[in-house]
Design a protein around this nucleic acid. Structure first.
Lengths: 246, 246
DNA sequence: CAGTGGTCTAGACCACAGT
DNA sequence: CTGTGGTCTAGACCACTGG
């Protein structure tokens, strides 16, 4: 339960859209009408609607109103920062984790390039293989800052790293820079994953993860068998009045 | 030139961050200080800062201030809705387009599944191959609603479709649902693209594109040779106080 | 024309950081 | 404690849409 008016209203409107009380193409009640209905100011309503808009649930049009969009394509929240465990929970996949490594190491020159940390810095290196429907299809590497987390119990890594960090350590994970590439399969990939003969490539998702106070906290690399990868996104066009060149 | 205070201030602050007037880890002036500096209300400043935050340029922390983040990773705006032409312009690649097809067709059952349009609907089908550094590495399919665009001159398709739509037709392209998958190479892919022996797969980006009034307008499928694909994203964690199950 | 969303203000109170 | 960002208000004016 939150205590924010705008967030409560956002959730209520979201539920109504998801449940079909408002259908695709319908207009929401006007901002003035909503502000009366919920007895809040119009600016508060506008903040709630901004959230719906960012979710891709409505489209606002000046002079007309807030058009309800089709929420069906929206069921995969793979965009944003979401952990494997959360995904397998919401998607109802049968999933299992194999822990290969969980130890402190020093950053060498190879890691240096990936992590942007000085050579010799101590990090916790974690290697995990993810099994979905009895096939090993994802290879996860994580490097975290031990000054922030301390050592991490093996048992927690077989569940969710993020759950441990947020629930147990109360670490406020906040934002990430993410990159998606396709890379060639390495010998190590082939050893630990169930790959088919035609699999020459893996989809690799690399993330630099930061805490709320903007401290650099974790680098992760998640290597997916290509047929098990899917990325869904809702995006708005930036009408570029601005200069992009810097 | 815009006439919005919050947007002007956003651009000014953005420029200062990009140019290094504010460095990584610095705090921006407080909201009160900024509102005095620009002689606007604090809410207006907050709107500007919201934009910077969405861009991943600052991180706000209650009680502390707005922390400036590292803008270096941020130079690839492949996220969002961006056309091939815009990308090749900003990235300075040597690029060329080969137009294979530009004609009205009727939706058949195969297209029906992709477009979510009734069988028999008339659409403009466009097929283009993109050459980068003399190699044919991207195959683009576009299907647009002819009621909205009318026929499209061949010459314009060798440039940018989006440029034509926005500059010439003044169509307000607004948002899209996008999906990224990896698919097997088809015979048609192999015929039109310069693929290497080991290329069994392509990265496929599918988008459903809508106008400002939420009318469905275009479906596009962009098939990339895997080594020429890169996707960069900045994401904030949704602290899920909320239910994701619907 | 009346009604819609878009921008902006001046003020208030609260929750949180750092000292 | 002071200063920070977070929430919220009541009102104003503007730009746009539709009839």
């Amino acid at each position: 339960m939150t205590t924010n008016k705008y967030y409560d209203i956002y959730l209520q409107l979201k539920r109504k859209i998801m449940q079909g009380s408002y259908k695709e193409g319908d207009l929401l009640p006007s901002e003035n009408a909503l502000s009366k209905e919920y007895t809040v100011s119009r600016e508060t309503i506008r903040k709630s609607l901004d959230y719906l808009s960012q979710d891709g649930l409505i489209q606002k049009k000046q002079g007309l109103g807030s058009i309800v969009l089709n929420p069906t394509l929206f069921s995969f929240p793979i965009s944003g920062l979401t952990s494997f465990k959360e995904l397998s929970d919401t998607q109802g996949m049968q999933a299992e984790t194999i822990l290969l490594k969980n130890e402190r190491i020093k950053v060498d020159d190879v890691l240096h390039k990936k992590l942007n940390l000085p050579i010799g810095t101590e990090v916790i290196a974690i290697e995990r293989v993810r099994k979905i429907d009895d096939q090993r299809v994802i290879f996860d590497y994580d490097y975290v800052n031990p000054d922030i987390t301390g050592d991490i119990p093996d048992a927690r890594l077989e569940q969710s790293l993020y759950d441990y960090l947020e629930t147990e350590l109360k670490l406020p994970i906040s934002f990430a820079n993410k990159e998606i590439l396709v890379e060639s399969v390495s010998d190590k990939d082939r050893e630990h994953l169930d790959l088919r003969d035609e699999d020459n490539h893996l989809v690799v998702i690399s993330s630099h993860v930061y805490l709320e106070d903007a401290r650099y906290f974790q680098y992760s690399e998640s290597r997916h068998r290509v047929d098990r990868f899917r990325f869904v996104d809702f995006s708005r066009r930036q009408h570029s009045l601005e200069e992009h060149r810097f």
